[in-house]
Structures are given as structure tokens and as C-alpha cells.
Design a protein around this nucleic acid. Structure first.
Lengths: 222, 222
DNA sequence: AATGAGTGTCTTGTATACAATCTGTTTGAC
DNA sequence: GTCAAACAGATTGTATACAAGACACTCATT
């Protein structure tokens, strides 16, 4: 279970947090965790810094590292920001994306199609990520692409849950086509709006899911 | 010069990087830097992680920490994203901000006014930061507020330069008033547009400044 | 002469030991 | 009986020592 390298260590902890192994607000005891993971405190502390950067833990000086399980409200807030970032990407892409960019998005969308036919959620999920990253790149603003990618990654586990909702895959696929058409038509407003609602729907679906479980932050399978 | 605590260490390095003490792409030698700052490598490495989170340095495993001086292009990209985030804050604030939020923004704007009368750029600069943070809070989306605040902080030194342009302070002040009026009138689109151009102008002014210097990344005074 | 393997040095990555600070408890005084 | 201060234990922060990988230089071989 314990990772060998530093980056693996961060990923291990990320998985542990996202899989709900720790309570919200729980303090991560350096000594105990390092013993458990079979590493010393030094690399563990460095991985804490990385996790703090993504917001999964909060570091309070002289107090320790505390896991920050995002609650439903914060989750919704994150989807709201994501929607706006993606809309911005769409707007810029519609204005100035290259043939190469378009091709890459089309390829990724086709991969999504194939995954849908196979009914394989995991494959779809990966192809979906490629599609969105291609979109971010197509915006031509590499800083925006980086920020969007970062937030996308952070929302990954929740996005994944929402994709399990019945019929959502097909719907998501159709939205991709709409987005591509708008970008190809260089219709900035339509592209932005299509993406905004594409993401907003995800937030909403996720919210519905949470409401249906109706108790605490659900354990998310890795 | 050397900071005593870990957070101070990060700030010291931040200042050193932003003041142009290092070349773009330069590797930060852990041993030499730790000797120079009078600390051991352990806290230095942790501060590297923090700086990597803000994008000021890039950490390449087994290779080291490399400073990433944002060039003019990336700077412009960052202002473009900032404009959109602030526009989003404005839209949300116009929709749902409280009397308390409004009052805080008004107070900060008044402080800006006073600083303008005094002709004190530093005081204006701080009051301006309070104003914008109040706006972020007023959006009601605390995640958005955090992200906006983070990017704002990262753009601080460049924003500061741009404020030194003749007559820019007064103009900026007027823009604040427009923004407040739009929010008070609950006019979402106008608030968003006012903020978008408020930030876009900053990016443009900064760009002009760079062009007028026309050589390399200028040394930024702290 | 050029290329490739091997070795040596330098730098990053990790472990451990030590110092400083915080928390909780106990004891004493009012 | 309650509040405060001091002490004990534990935990974070820092320094140093050690391990392992990367890069450059040399030397041998083609």
C-alpha cells in the first residue's frame, strides 16, 4: 500500500482522503502515519505541503495537518467556478482555436462515443478527461488551461460519481457534440453557454445524488 | 535578511524571486541557498513546495527547483483569467450580496478615495486590496473568493507597477464607483462587464509599460 | 576521431536525532 | 470550589547524517 517515491506518497494520501478513510477535520498524525506508510516524517511532511496546495488538507502552523473533506456546499461552489472557467475556455476556443485543436477534440469525443458503446464508464471517464484537456488547450491561454486542468482534477472523484447516474453518459456525450458544433461555428456565446450548462448539470446531478444518499459526505470509491 | 520561521522563509524567497534576483529557469541550489539564508535544507525544501503551489518555481523530481519568471505573455494570460473571475464575483454579488457586504465595499472604496487625495500609492494599493477582497466575499461563493484572492495576490506586484502610470489611480477609483453602482442596482451584466474591463485595463496598462521598457522582465521593486 | 561504457563527484531524497512549542493535567492559592 | 500557573507529555519544526540517483568527464575501443 505504501508508495515508494514522494509523488506516489502524495497520490496514496490523496486516495486515502478521497476514499473517506479520514474524518473531516481529522488531524493527520505525522508519526503514526509515517510508521503506517513505512516512510519517515520528512517526505510525509513534503507531501502534506502538496496536498495543502490542492486544498485537501489544511496546514496550521504548530498544530498539524487537518483533512478538509469538501462538503456539499463547497462542492457546488467548485462546480460553479469550474462551469465559468470552462465557459471561458469555450469562448476563447470558438474565437481562435486551430484545426489541430479541433481535430484533437473530435478524436477525444469519438473515443467517448466508443466508450459509451462499450458501456465502460472507466474508459469514458478517461476519454472525457482528454476531451476537456484538449478544450483547455484550445483556449490558447495556457495559464487558463493550467487552472482549469487543476480544478478538473480536483473535481475528478465527484465528477466520476455523477457519471454513474443512469443515462448521464449518453446525455454528456450529446453535450460534447453541441459544444464542438458551437466552437466549429465560431459562435462564442453558444460555446460558452453550452459548456456552462454542461458543467452546471454535473454539479446539479452530484447534488441530487448527495441528497438521495442524504447522509454526510459519502465514501467515494477510488 | 533571512527569515526565522518557515512561512517567513517562503515570503523571503517570494520577494527574492519577484524582485528579479534570479534568472528565469535558474536552478535553486538547496545547499547554497540554505547556507545563504542560514537555515537547513529541510525547511527550505518545504518552502519550495509552497512556492511550487503558486507557480513561482517548478519542481522537477531528482533535478531540483527551477524559478519560473512569468513572461509578458503569461502575465497577460493571468490578467485575462483574473478579469473573468472578478466578473463572475461581480455578477454573483449583484445578484445576492448583503447590506453588510455592500457597506464593506463602500468603506474600502472610501479608503481608496482618501488615499487618492493623499496621493499615497501604497495606501491606495492596500485599500484597493481590501476592496477587491470584499467583492470576492460578496460573491457568496467562498471557493471562488479563495481562488480570486489567490490569483489577486499573485498578480500583486504587477498590479502595483501598473498603478504607477500617470492618472491611473483616479481612473481606477472611478471604475470602483461604477462597479459599486452596478452591484447596488443589482445589474448583473453591468457589474460583470465593469469588472471585466477594470481588470482588462490593468493588463493592458501593464503590457504598455512592459513595451515601453521594451527589454527583458523588469526588476520589480518590492 | 567518435562513440560508448564506466567511474567519480555533486545534488537531491530520506531517515533520524534534537529543539521548541503547544496542550492537558495537576497542584496550589484565593 | 474555582481559577490560575506550572509542569509533564506529546507533537511539530529544524538540523544533520546518510543513501541513491544524475551528470560530466575520462578512458578504452571501434
Amino acid at each position: 500500500m505504501s508508495g515508494r517515491t514522494a509523488d506516489t506518497l502524495r497520490e496514496s494520501l490523496e486516495q486515502m482522503i478521497l476514499s473517506g478513510e479520514f474524518e473531516d477535520g481529522e488531524r493527520l498524525d505525522e508519526t503514526r502515519l509515517s510508521a503506517r506508510l513505512g516512510v519517515s516524517r520528512t517526505p510525509l511532511r513534503e507531501s502534506f505541503q502538496m496536498l495543502a496546495a490542492t486544498g485537501l488538507v489544511e496546514l496550521i502552523p504548530r498544530r498539524g495537518a487537518f483533512v478538509r473533506q469538501p462538503d456539499v456546499v463547497q462542492m457546488f461552489e467548485m462546480f460553479e467556478v469550474m462551469a465559468e472557467l470552462e465557459a471561458m475556455c469555450g469562448r476563447l476556443a470558438a474565437r481562435l482555436c486551430s484545426e489541430e485543436d479541433l481535430r484533437r477534440m473530435h478524436d477525444a469525443a469519438d473515443d467517448c462515443d466508443r466508450a459509451l458503446e462499450l458501456g465502460d464508464a472507466d474508459v469514458y471517464y478517461r476519454a472525457n478527461e482528454v476531451f476537456h484537456n484538449a478544450l483547455y488547450q484550445a483556449s490558447g491561454n495556457s495559464f487558463l488551461a493550467g487552472e482549469a486542468s487543476r480544478l478538473h482534477k480536483r473535481l475528478q472523484p465527484f465528477r466520476r460519481m455523477q457519471l454513474r447516474v443512469r443515462g448521464r453518459l449518453k446525455q454528456s456525450m450529446d453535450e460534447h457534440r453541441d459544444i464542438l458544433m458551437a466552437i466549429e461555428a465560431a459562435d462564442e456565446d453558444r460555446a460558452a453557454q453550452a459548456l456552462r450548462s454542461h458543467i452546471a448539470i454535473q454539479g446539479k446531478k452530484f447534488n441530487d445524488l448527495m441528497a438521495s444518499y442524504s447522509k454526510g459526505p459519502a465514501k467515494l470509491a477510488s
